[in-house]
Simulated assay, not measured.
Amino acid sequence: MLLDANDRQLVQKYDDFIAQSEFGNFYQSRQWSKVKDNWKPCYFYLMDHGEITAALSVMSIQDSVAGKEFFYAPRGPVCDLRDLDTVSALIDEVREYALKNNGFLLRLDPEVAHEDELVRQYAKEDLHFLKNPALTSQPLMSLILEIRGRSAEEVLSDFSKSTRKEIRSSYRHGVKFHVGQRSDLETFHKFLVEMSEKKKIGYRPLDYFVRVYDVFGEKSRLYFASYADELIAGGLMIGFNKTLTGLYRADPIHVNKNQSAQMQFENIKYAIDEGYGFYDLGGIYTTDINDGLYKFKQKFTENNVVHWIGNLDIVLDQEAYDKYYTHHMERFDWSKVDVSKENILKEYPR
């Protein structure tokens, strides 16, 4: 069923379900659709005896290449992916809605680790998981620390000797950790712009981070490191359900006192104190140790690489999808990932 946004009681029930379900995550929350305010949201759910049993938060946007609407359910659905009947019922409802609203593609990328048997079960129902880095909306791998009831000191002792040394040296150097306020977002954004321009990568405008901070309220965590009474680096995290997730970090490296290591450990301590079970440092595109992103994140997650099950791309208009497919396959930089274009074409023949 399509959620009636005017039914306050039902909307609250929907929000509570996403926040409390063992399958819930912030990407599937209605808050996230408020952050992504250039997309059009729609929310679907199933009920049994007056209680929501499954949900799928979907956003859509006009795709300039396909010329039609792209419908996307980030890290959905919120239900047990092994319950094929439930997942199929949700997909059927969204498919019908998307077809009526000029959709050419419906994409789901569940927050579920890869399982061969689960992939096979879906394939029997003509639902095929795709792991094509050129056609994914989220990274196909993430680095996530499983806290498993450990104390901060126990986690620290389980880190490598070199990582422990980095963390401890930051305190000896006089680096200090701070939790920021809304008024500090501009400082964080300046760090982000400077770092991004050095690395020649894109970055989001300040108002995006203001929305994240405002929408998630006390569950958003803006943090900084300082040295010699000057802020030198920072980051932004979201706590939701059972996971504390790092969205962005910015360290222009004005000084190198291992401040980023300290920020990670302080946030791990916070995650433990707040009762989170997972500390998610986000996506990676390669496990090449020479890749800076992977090299940094693996140190604070015990190199726990989660290989996601992939995307369910449900094509609604083949001609429009062909345009989309060709465009992204040709423009993608294959040098940044662990697979080649040739191998992808062999694994997923058209």
Rank of each mutant, 00 (worst) to 15 (best):
T286G: 05
I314L: 15
F332Q: 04
A271K: 02
E125F: 04
I344D: 04
R204E: 15
R30K: 02
A225Y: 06
A5P: 04
E342I: 07
D229S: 13
F129N: 00
R75E: 08
K269V: 10
L56M: 09
K341T: 10
R120W: 13
I289W: 09
D317E: 12
N258P: 00
Y45N: 05
Y227N: 05
E342R: 07
M329C: 14
L156I: 09
N290H: 15
L46P: 03
E342C: 06
N304W: 04
V215Q: 13
A271G: 07
L84N: 07
L90R: 00
Y279H: 05
I238A: 12
K219S: 13
Q31E: 15
E302M: 08
D16T: 14
R168W: 12
A89L: 05
S29H: 04
P205C: 12
D15L: 01
T287I: 09
K131R: 15
S57R: 05
Q181H: 10
M59Q: 15
R75C: 09
I201T: 13
K297M: 02
V212S: 07
E274T: 10
D80P: 09
Y171M: 11
A113M: 07
S335E: 14
A271V: 08
D333T: 06
K40W: 10
R249Q: 08
S340Q: 06
V175C: 06
N25H: 08
L145V: 07
L81T: 01
A5E: 13
A261K: 02
N304E: 03
H328V: 07
D92R: 13
Q262L: 15
Y203C: 08
R150Y: 01
V175N: 04
D251V: 00
Y223I: 09
F17N: 04
Y203T: 08
R331E: 13
V215H: 12
A271W: 02
Q264D: 03
L108F: 00
W32R: 11
L222Y: 01
G310W: 00
I272A: 02
A89V: 07
N267A: 10
H328Q: 08
Y171E: 14
Y227A: 05
V305S: 05
Q181I: 04
Q121F: 06
P74S: 10
D288A: 10
L135T: 06
E117K: 07
H128G: 09
K100L: 14
C42S: 14
K100T: 12
S335D: 15
Y325W: 15
E266P: 10
D273N: 05
Q28R: 04
T301D: 05
A225G: 14
V94S: 01
L90K: 00
D251E: 09
H254L: 14
M47H: 11
E330C: 05
S260K: 03
K299Y: 00
